[in-house]
Design a protein around this nucleic acid. Sequence first.
DNA 1: CTGTCATTTGTCAATTCATGACAGTTGACA
DNA 2: TGTCAACTGTCATGAATTGACAAATGACAG
Lengths: 210, 210
Amino acid sequence: MGTVSAMTAIASSSGLRERKKQETRDQLVDAAFRLFSERGFDDVSAAEIAASVGVSERTFFRYFAAKEDVIFPDAGEKLSHIRQLVAVLPPELSLVDGVRRALVAMSEEYKESKEVMLQRAQLVAMTPSLRVHIMQREQEWVEEFAIAIAPRMNLDQANDLRPELAAAMIVTAFRVVLGRWLRSGGEGDMPTMLDQALAFIGSGLGADGT
Amino acid sequence: MGTVSAMTAIASSSGLRERKKQETRDQLVDAAFRLFSERGFDDVSAAEIAASVGVSERTFFRYFAAKEDVIFPDAGEKLSHIRQLVAVLPPELSLVDGVRRALVAMSEEYKESKEVMLQRAQLVAMTPSLRVHIMQREQEWVEEFAIAIAPRMNLDQANDLRPELAAAMIVTAFRVVLGRWLRSGGEGDMPTMLDQALAFIGSGLGADGT
DNA sequence: CTGTCATTTGTCAATTCATGACAGTTGACA
DNA sequence: TGTCAACTGTCATGAATTGACAAATGACAG
């Protein structure tokens, strides 16, 4: 409790080797998070993080391809989770309703690990290179959504720009809502905000701009 | 002609000093573009670009804060141009119509320097760190649009998420269309594609998902 | 024209991210 | 227990930035 790694609950497979590896990884994540929070992302070197855990700098980079990655240790699982969320949407739901359901499900995760998310948001807000990573992940989400909703729209994702457009809109909506939620210190109710946002989109951005 | 810097036409102010500076900058941009196109962004060092122009590596970084910036030498002007485009929109136009006009105006610039844009797109497509820069610029655009359209929507940009949402949607639409246009090799007609995209947005993403 | 001043550059040095190579350790498993 | 594969540490290297300081040079007054 209190650790960042706690939210990345992996069904740690059997072996001692695996367990140790996971432990090292967790330690790196937690140490990085603590140090970054204290002094900011740019003022903590990878070497320092590694040292504070008792491994070599080289090992740090074996666990994380880039220094930024240690801030998003759950990127992989998050993506496959989205994939899964979209996959199980009942086909009888309309596009917007289906999306609402998926997004609300996603928002639950944020609520669950609110403190970590907020602290991470702080870091991201003050560090350009981290913002970048977020954006890259969003792009993956867009692709994921686009593939998932193209058949739902009876459109060919390759030739019609609408699936990609819709997917981008949806992810953008989530980003904007999440941004507001984070800035509000996690006070707002994400499902409600998502409803508002999606309703606004569904209305054609207020129809005629009045 | 043929040079990238040609599109960054600055009313070079009088002095010899200014002229020389601009010249150095242009040379760096052109050399960088040529080298990157030949061997890829990651396989050309800043030192090499500098050397090929006859200045020191340190000087390169005095002109460009980061190696990526040399690919987007016109970032500053582009933003103020958007600002200006939005500022002069006739207030009687609806949100979507006004936006359409601004986006079409932007798309003209892309048509004018098609080759450069396409070549740049190639580079960006194959280089993650460049994609990032694009995204950061888009975020600036979003903020710009949000401020501009909030009064047009009679909403307070700080308390209502809809202006930011609408702005994000618009910029996203532009990104998707631009992406398609670039992938089509500059064949498609951007104004037409923008019309389609905006119509789709205005319809609430196809209303009910059929 | 000439001397000063401010700007621009070059040189040097240092830090940090990131990666490849190679050898030593240590779990996994027959 | 012994072999093998997976991990790790050590060393070395390349490249991106960035700060400090001195040399070069355009701008401009006198």
